[in-house]
Amino acid sequence: PAAAAPGSNPSHFMKGAIIQLATGELKRVEDLQTQDFVRSAEVSGGLKIDSSMVMDIRSSQQRPGLVSLHFTVGEQQSKVTIDVPPEHPFFVFGQGWSSCSPERTAQLYGLTCHLLQVGDMCVSITLQQQQ
């Protein structure tokens, strides 16, 4: 299955960055909560929140310096792999921002993260299926 790498613009994740929810509300990136994503998807029409479980974390074979994250996505349990820098934050349900290297995330973005681990359920989005 196809997978799009998360946004390449790191300023999204800089502490203090202003994020607009689908409801129009503005929040700082460090203040976002699980419900903000869920509610945004509900009102956005066309986007659906999926739970993506981290199945494996290892160094990328193809791209040194990156980390390969293996997910199973949604009800279909699709297997998706993406390569990201170790400092890239993911939003874990009920926990908040998490990365493979919270120290680097703090250095580069100023964003406080938990350590991303196998079994974590990350927020991801897909296109809403038309019934």
Binding site: P1, A2, A3, A4, A5, P6, G7, N9, S11, H12, F13, A17, I18, I19, Q20, L21, A22, L26, V29, L32, D36, F37, S40, S44, L47, D50, S52, F71, T72, V73, G74, E75, Q76, Q77, S78, K79, V80, I82, F90, F91, C122, V123, S124, I125, T126, L127, Q129
Partner: peptide, 25 residues
Amino acid sequence: NVEPRSVPVFPWHSLVPFLDSSQPG
């Protein structure tokens, strides 16, 4: 005079990965 600088605003969906779950793996 200091011109006001616009603060960038990012959409919520730019923060989370788009992972295609339409095809079972």
